[in-house]
Amino acid sequence: MATRKIKYINIDADKCSGCRLCESICSASHADPPYSLVNPGRSRIRVFRDEDNDVYIPVLAGPYTDVECLGRNTVMVKGKEYGECSFCRASCPSRDLFREPETDIPLKCDTCESINSEPLCVKWCLSKCLTFEEVEEEVEEETPAAA
């Protein structure tokens, strides 16, 4: 069996202080030229904040989808109610999140691979809400197609 490395950014939402430094550093480091601007609107991580209900959830941009959900529900976790899209990572037609402000091109977290770096949101997260983990995972070897 062969192995491959899988990168995870783990989120402990209880530790999030809602400072949004992850958004700033993400947008800046992925800018072209690098670090030429700051704009959370371009960030591949967003913090959903609802201070009245003590909800602070950093969400990493996931895959793009061109359809939106039909049945959206609220979720109860540890006695707190979370809204319709609170944990959703998708860039979808129902919200203008995780898309470049001018071009509408969907954004997706690449764990900073495209800029050859360790995940910078993790490095700059001083509340240790975001942590980085690399896991070796076994994968089935591709077998040559039967003759």
Partner: peptide, 8 residues
């Protein structure tokens, strides 16, 4: 909008 920086 972007905040443009002089010496990023």
């Amino acid at each position: 909008k972007d905040i443009p920086l002089a010496n990023a």
